[in-house]
Amino acid sequence: MEVRFVLNGTEVKVDVKPTAILTDILRDKLGVTSVKKGCETGDCGACAVLLDGELVNSCLVLAPTVAGKSVTTVEGLIVNGEIDIIQKRLAEYHGTQCGYCTPGMVMAIKALLNKNPKPSEAEIRRAISGNLCRCTGYQKIVEAVQSITA
């Protein structure tokens, strides 16, 4: 079946099976490989994107349900070649090591800061609680976010 949605500001049209997950559509059909597959069960957050502005695990979103909605990935945060402050600070503060969790982590932080520009440390930790990172130990990620909101 055909599904149309807005991807990072541009309308796209894809042919999908009803049971296809958004992660696969983005990666296999639309070439958005920043969206990672770490578990496909909603546990790791590596596949996280914004769906109509809300953080979701794209591995749990069936492709047809996205019809008419808007999807934002890390690519969508780059405006006129300028990367988002979150992308900048995570890099500068060593909030990324192997990088596999990073795109999902960026989106979780984006979702937080969109709603709450001055989060406390506890709020930051709660906001990234669905994004597993096996490398950094989270501390550097928290510091990166604090550097933005301080």
């Binding site: 490989t33 890390v74 990367i83 060593h94 990088g99 990073t102």
Partner: peptide, 19 residues
Amino acid sequence: RIPLYDSYRHTTGQTRYVD
């Protein structure tokens, strides 16, 4: 703070992993 050489690629989703 010296960013890792590949960290901007990680945060912008450009790093190409095997998958």
